[in-house]
Simulated scan of single mutants.
Amino acid sequence: MTTVLASTLSDTPVMGSDGTEIGTVHNITMNVETGELRRLLVTPTINDLRGFETNDDGKIVISAGRMSDIDDYLIVDLPSR
């Protein structure tokens, strides 16, 4: 995957590996000591949350391990249903 600055991810559109638009990046969490990205908080644009975990504010929580690519969209692998 391409290396990008975490600050550039805000408001990036998020798409599932099947081409479904999921939402936009709202925020990220990372380990400040190592710089390792931990997870994304995504503002959903879909009604079917496809098995994703959500927080109390209705944001989709996506593990950084699900990120597979970034270009015009941040591509994430979809969870198993």
Rank of each mutant, 00 (worst) to 15 (best):
M30W: 00
R50Y: 10
R39Q: 13
V4F: 11
E33S: 12
T45K: 06
T24A: 11
E33V: 09
I28F: 05
V32C: 00
D11F: 06
E36D: 10
T45G: 08
L9V: 06
V14Y: 08
R81P: 08
A6V: 13
V76L: 13
R66S: 15
S7G: 11
T2M: 10
A6G: 15
S7Q: 12
V42D: 04
T20C: 07
I70M: 05
R38Y: 07
G16V: 11
P13H: 07
G58N: 06
T20P: 04
R81N: 14
S7D: 13
I22R: 02
K59D: 03
G65A: 10
E53C: 00
M30C: 01
G19F: 11
D56T: 08
S63W: 03
V25C: 01
L49C: 05
V61G: 08
I46P: 06
D72P: 00
V32A: 04
S7R: 15
D69Y: 07
G19P: 11
V4D: 03
V76H: 11
V76T: 11
R39S: 14
E36I: 08
D69H: 10
T45E: 07
L74C: 07
L9E: 07
M15D: 00
L49S: 06
R81S: 13
N47H: 11
G23F: 05
G23P: 12
G19W: 09
S80D: 09
G35W: 14
M30E: 02
D57Q: 13
V4S: 08
P13T: 09
V32T: 05
L74P: 03
A64H: 02
N55L: 10
D48A: 13
I62K: 01
D69S: 12
I62Y: 01
N47S: 14
M67H: 03
I46T: 14
I28R: 04
M30R: 05
S63M: 03
I60D: 02
N27R: 14
S63Q: 05
M1S: 13
G51A: 08
D69V: 02
G16L: 15
L9D: 05
S17R: 11
G58Y: 04
D77T: 13
I70L: 10
E53Q: 13
D69A: 15
N27V: 03
L74T: 02
I70C: 02
S10T: 06
R66A: 15
I28C: 05
G35R: 14
I28H: 02
G23T: 07
S7E: 14
G35S: 11
L40N: 09
V25Q: 02
I28Y: 04
E21L: 13
G58L: 05
R39H: 12
P79F: 01
I70V: 15
S63P: 04
I75T: 15
L37Y: 06
T20G: 00
M67K: 06
D72S: 05
I70W: 02
T43K: 11
L41D: 01
L74K: 03
T29L: 09
M15L: 03
D71T: 09
G35K: 12
G51D: 08
T54S: 13
T24K: 09
V14G: 09
I75L: 10
T29N: 13
N55C: 11
A64P: 01
R50H: 12
V4C: 07
D57S: 14
T12F: 00
